[in-house]
Design a protein around this nucleic acid. Structure first.
Length: 832
RNA sequence: GCCGAAGUGGCGGAAUGGCAGACGCGGCCGACUCAAAAUCGGUUGGGGCAACCCGUGUGGGUUCGACUCCCACCUUCGGUACCA
């Protein structure tokens, strides 16, 4: 038989088809999602909205194409699926563009939004554009400001003097996530700490609840990252009495420790250099040394942090405190290995049982007092001699008065309880999570809606006067102050409470605030009285399936959970968690297997791929290249395989073999089609897009073979093409639509589109076989295979196997010790 | 350092403890073409004429049987980093 090498019909021309169907779908408002549809339960699917950087990149496609496939699949399964899209449109790049290129951030952003919306439309996704949100639009950021006011009223927003990441080159503060290895993400300049008056959100109030994420259907590694980020530590707080109270009356230092069992081993005290008590307790003769050290610590922190194997440094304050448990006089030092922002900013140093304290003690000749005896080594008990490094494990207490002989694990609780009894502290829980600094000295963000009044203090802008609009006419000078502060027109106002002249806050809010609630806006995007109505929230929230990158594990996803809990406490939303299910896709890499970046020249432009291969092939390739959660390199040469497949699909459907009733092979074709359907259904449910597409390729290959042979059974062929087209609809919506229309189905004007069809059910009877291949092994090695009925018993299988010459040869002259039979799978002879 | 994920052909990757390498790229052979590209068909883990042997990072273990489970180690990637 010779293969037909020339396509007999019309060639597959993806771009023309795709444009035409996108227009038609839009004209028919096919993806408009009403709040309620009779007989279709609601389901909210969401993929992270893009930042308006200017161009959609492959990463966006990699995130969105599979998400869209999933949304389409659930639509076909009978759900009314909300799958919205919007733009995360505030942020620093817009402002930098303004400083560098003389383009206003508003114009730069609007232009990018238009461009990216157009690019998103080439994807052919089911986005309901009627629900689009744009975080930089006044009717959106009005509500971002409204959120700030609610948090302020709840006591969850507060103002505090604090150290902030400061980039001396960009002249602005940076968010933690914009500091990479101590350097500015954009210009690579070393980041400094600068003390400034800042606004914070009290996310720590929700630390315990945020820690509890066990019930969430999220990837374990993301939940773990969040738990680590929150960093719950159980321990004790212990007070040490100051030998001489500070001038302001402070008479003790409180420390947090996870090792109250080592309290009798304290030989010195260490405060963070910026600890507020330092200046008050430093003795006159130590002033100079302490000042120099503080100065050095504040300026050089980031640079020094980068040097590995850093030596411990510090300075003595000249003051002492008293360990209540021992009555010992303990010198108070400062050192930059103690962080001002964790615990109480003060540490009790136990060099014998903490490696950092040990190193510090070595450096400055401080005594090392062992209070936990390590367990015996090789039966030899610890001999009480000195240590070469800290013993941080468990052991038995020694030199600890009444606690001597107690196991350290037990002593933790006992000593903590003893502290509480005496009023010297007690058991406590400490978190690594810090309050969220939301102030930004930038223009392109939502202005913080606060007015400072000489008399009333900070006053929230009344809700009916929101939004506090960003003035368009602003000077963009990189001065390190918010450009808003240069606009007297913006700054000058009156106090909403007492009507006296007052000044506006000129900082704007961290853009993570905009994205902390955007998913709550989609259900009710046009509401002008509230951020969203309770009815809309009950209709759609929480999000059933959220997808996005795991780089947001400890930022956006944590902030969003915090916001949702606040919203719950305000009675705005149902449930406790915003995202019932979350799936984090991997990262798409350049063809060289490295992160795509312009400087490496390994960036793949989606527009080019779409132009060359079509959106369907591009979508399918992104899903085919590997497991979605793993990501991987984008191989510009491999996409051709997917393109060839779609060509074959096209040829097979538009130009079938001669079809006749009762042609042999009908049953096999039917089996192939239905087992493919079963496999694809299972894979889509589990988000295994790569193997789903591989299965469809196999079915296509089977059909191609029949086409080459020239004939096929009409009923089986027709069913196979119908099933293949329906299975193709979620991943490759355009070609599926075109093929659906070319072979007219049961079409009513109201449900003309393939995307309005139901997902088919596979017929288990069609997959049944008369005989199946069973592997025959000898000592676990495959020697042959036999065909037996699926329900054959061991005797039947064995009889068949015994008749095989190859098996007979293998077991001849040997003793059969055991026979293992797994029905439908294998028969294993264990011989000796 | 700590936490997490992963190591399978030339490459991307498949495999409820049961035929390792599905599917695809690339390679090779062929068809079409004046030719090339594109397209289509065949073939393709390594060794061996063959029977067969060797193969899933390394070393051990459990099992009739291990890519899969357990222990130790090595490597890569991601996160985090003096967190008291």
């Amino acid at each position: 038989m010779t293969s037909d090498t020339q396509p007999r019909g019309e060639r597959y021309a993806p771009r023309a088809i795709e444009r035409a169907w996108q227009e038609r779908w839009e004209r028919d408002a096919l993806y408009r999602t009403p709040d309620h549809v009779e007989g279709r339960p609601n389901r909210y699917h969401l993929t992270m909205f893009p930042y308006t950087s200017g161009d959609l990149h492959v990463g966006h496609w990699f995130a969105m194409a599979p998400s869209d496939t999933l949304a389409r699949y659930f639509r076909m399964r009978g759900w009314n699926v909300l799958f919205p899209m919007g733009f995360d449109a505030f942020g620093l790049p817009a402002e930098n563009a303004a400083i560098k290129g003389g383009v206003h951030p508003r114009d730069w952003t609007d232009r990018n939004v238009d461009r990216m919306r157009g690019q998103l439309k080439t994807m052919g996704a089911t986005f309901d554009w009627a629900r689009e949100v744009n975080t930089s639009a006044p009717d959106y950021y009005r509500w971002t400001q409204w959120w700030f006011v609610q948090l302020f009223k709840q006591g969850l927003a507060y103002r505090k003097q604090a150290n902030a990441n400061w980039c001396p080159s960009c002249n602005t503060t940076l968010a933690n996530e914009q500091v990479v290895d101590g350097r500015c993400e954009r210009c690579d300049t070393l980041v400094e700490q600068r003390e400034m008056e800042q606004w914070f959100f009290r996310i720590t109030r929700y630390a315990e609840e945020l820690l509890d994420n066990d019930g969430l259907d999220w990837p374990e590694h993301v939940k773990l990252m969040q738990r680590n980020w929150i960093g719950r530590s159980e321990g004790a707080e212990a007070a040490f009495a100051l030998e001489r109270p500070a001038p302001d009356g402070t008479d003790e230092i409180r420390v947090f420790t996870t090792r109250p069992d080592t309290l009798h081993g304290v030989t010195f005290m260490v405060l963070a250099p910026e600890h507020p008590l330092v200046n008050r307790i430093t003795t006159p003769e130590q002033q100079a040394e302490v000042r120099v050290y503080q100065e050095r610590a504040s300026h050089a922190t980031e640079i020094e942090r980068l040097s590995t194997e850093r030596e411990k440094t510090g300075a003595f304050t000249g003051s002492y405190c008293v360990n209540h448990l021992t009555g010992d006089r303990v010198p108070i030092w400062i050192a930059d290995y103690v962080l001002g922002s964790y615990g109480t900013g003060a540490v009790m140093a136990v060099p014998a049982h903490d490696q950092r304290d040990f190193e510090f003690a070595q450096q400055y000749g401080m005594p090392v007092r062992v209070v936990i005896a390590p367990p015996p080594v090789d039966g030899v008990p610890w001999d009480g001699s000195g240590l070469t490094e800290a013993w941080t494990g468990a052991g038995t207490l020694v030199a600890s008065k009444q606690f001597d002989g107690m196991p350290s694990t037990e002593a933790k609780g006992a000593i903590a309880a003893y502290l509480a009894e005496r009023g010297w502290g007690g058991p406590t829980v400490n978190y690594r999570l810090r309050d969220w600094l939301i102030s930004r000295q930038r223009y392109w963000g939502a202005p913080i809606p606060i007015i400072y009044c000489e008399v009333c203090g900070p006053v929230a802008v009344p809700e009916d006067r929101l939004p506090v609009e960003l003035p368009y006419d602003v000077e963009f000078r990189p001065t390190g102050q918010s450009p808003l502060s240069l606009s007297e027109e913006f700054v000058q106002t009156t106090c909403p409470q007492c009507e006296r002249p007052a000044r506006r806050e000129t900082d704007t809010m961290d853009t993570f605030m905009c994205s902390s609630w955007y998913y709550m806006r989609y259900p009710d995007p046009k509401n002008s009285a509230l951020p969203f109505g309770r009815a809309a929230a009950d209709t759609w929230l929480p999000v059933d399936q959220y997808t996005g990158g795991s780089e947001h594990a400890t930022m956006h996803l944590l902030y969003a959970r915090f916001f949702y809990k606040v919203a719950r406490d305000l009675g705005l939303v149902p449930g406790d968690e915003p995202f019932t299910r979350y799936y984090s896709q991997g990262q798409i890499l350049g063809p060289d297997g490295r992160r795509m970046s312009k400087s490496r020249g390994n960036v793949v432009a989606p527009d080019d791929q779409v132009e060359r291969w079509g959106a369907d092939a591009f979508r399918a390739y992104l899903m085919f290249l590997g497991p979605w959660d793993q990501g991987g390199p984008y191989d510009v040469d491999s996409i051709v395989g997917v393109s060839r497949w779609l060509n074959r699909v096209w040829n097979v459907v538009t130009d079938p073999p001669a079809l006749r009733q009762g042609e042999p092979g009908g049953r096999e074709l039917r089996r192939a089609a239905h087992s493919t359907l079963a496999k694809v259904t299972e894979d889509l449910e589990a988000k295994r897009f790569n193997t789903a597409i591989a299965a469809m390729m196999e079915l296509t290959n089977d059909m191609q073979k029949l086409r080459d042979e020239g004939t096929a059974d009409e009923a089986a062929w027709d069913e196979a093409t119908r099933l293949l087209t329906l299975m193709l609809a979620p991943p490759c919506p355009h070609i599926a639509e075109e093929l659906w229309q070319r072979r007219p189905r049961i079409v009513t004007p109201a449900t003309w589109s393939v995307h309005q069809q139901s997902w088919p059910e596979h017929d288990p009877a069609a997959i049944q076989r008369d005989t199946i291949d069973v592997v025959v092994q000898v000592n676990g090695k495959v020697r042959d295979r036999i065909a037996v009925p699926p329900d054959a018993d061991e005797a039947t299988a064995r009889a068949t196997a015994d008749a095989q010459p190859r098996i007979a040869e293998q077991i001849a002259g040997k003793e059969i010790v055991r026979v293992v039979y797994v029905p439908g799978r294998l028969l294993n002879f264990v011989v000796r």
